[in-house]
C-alpha cells in the first residue's frame, strides 16, 4: 500500500489556463513512470481527458529522455484523442546538444578570399574578413557578415532560419539566399552605391530586400547580444 501511495506522486497533472502541465518525477525509474502515466490517463477524469482539445506541456525535470523514451510518452498521451503535446520541457541536455547549441550561437571568424569553386560553410554566424569572388559560395546557419566585397553567392539561415541577415561592405552578389528564399542579382550593377548594405527577408513582401546597414537594428533587434 505504501508503494502504491508513492506511485501516486510520480506523475502530477496540473491544469493551467493554457492547458495541462504533466510533471514527471525525475527520481523514479522510467518503468514506474510509464506505468503510472498509463494508470492516470486511463482513469476516468470526466471531461478533463475526454472533452475538447487540450494542449499538454510535459515537464521532465532533471531526467534526460532518449528519443525512444519521449516517443513512448508521446504514444501514451496520444492515446487520448483530445490531448496534444505542445512541447517537452527539461532541465537537462546532453553534452552533444550543448555543443551544438554553442556552435549555433557562436560567430565564426574566417579570414580568407573565397574563390571561384570554393564553398565556405559554417554553423552559427559567419564573419568573413575578405572577399567572396564570383563563383564562390559562403553558407551559415546564422547571419553572414562580410568585411570585404561579396561578389559570389551567400546563403544565411541555411537550416531554415528566415530571420537571418546578410551584410557586406560591398554588396554585389550573384545570388543571395536566406533560408529557402533565393534572390538573383540584377544583370547589371550600377557603378556606385552598394556599400555597407544588408539583406533580409521582408515579412510584408515575402522576399529578400537589400537596404542600408543602418536600418538593420530596427528590422532585426534580436541581433543585439548585450
Amino acid at each position: 500500500m505504501a508503494m502504491a501511495q508513492k506511485l501516486q506522486h510520480n506523475v502530477t497533472i496540473k491544469g493551467t489556463k493554457d492547458g495541462l502541465v504533466l510533471l514527471l518525477d525525475d527520481l523514479c525509474s522510467f518503468e514506474h513512470l510509464v506505468e503510472e502515466l498509463n494508470d492516470k490517463l486511463s482513469d476516468d477524469h470526466g471531461q478533463l481527458l475526454n472533452g475538447p482539445l487540450i494542449s499538454v506541456i510535459v515537464k521532465t525535470g532533471n531526467r534526460y529522455l532518449t528519443d525512444q523514451q519521449s516517443g513512448l510518452i508521446r504514444e501514451i498521451i496520444g492515446q487520448k484523442k483530445n490531448l496534444e503535446i505542445k512541447r517537452f520541457e527539461t532541465n537537462v541536455i546532453t553534452v552533444a546538444e550543448a555543443e551544438e547549441m554553442k556552435k549555433e550561437a557562436q560567430i565564426m571568424r574566417v579570414s580568407k578570399v573565397v574563390r571561384s569553386g570554393q564553398v565556405l560553410s559554417v554553423q552559427g554566424d559567419l564573419l568573413l574578413i575578405g572577399d567572396v569572388n564570383p563563383g564562390g559560395t559562403i553558407m551559415a546557419t546564422g547571419n553572414i557578415f562580410v568585411l570585404g566585397s561579396l561578389k559570389g553567392i551567400a546563403h544565411s539561415g541555411s537550416s531554415g532560419n528566415r530571420e537571418a541577415v546578410i551584410a557586406a561592405s560591398v554588396m554585389k552578389p550573384t545570388q543571395l539566399r536566406i533560408a529557402d528564399m533565393i534572390n538573383r542579382a540584377p544583370d547589371h550593377y550600377p557603378e556606385h552605391g552598394h556599400e555597407m548594405e544588408c539583406a533580409f527577408i521582408s515579412d510584408e513582401e515575402d522576399q529578400i530586400l537589400i537596404d542600408r546597414i543602418s536600418i538593420v537594428h530596427k528590422i532585426r533587434p534580436e541581433l543585439n547580444r548585450l
Binding site: 574563390r115 571561384s116 569553386g117 570554393q118 563563383g135 564562390g136
Partner: peptide
C-alpha cells in the same frame, strides 16, 4: 574567373 578557381586550388 578560371584563374580565381586555380588560385583557390593552388592555395
Amino acid at each position: 574567373r578560371d584563374a580565381d578557381r586555380i588560385i583557390g586550388l593552388l592555395e
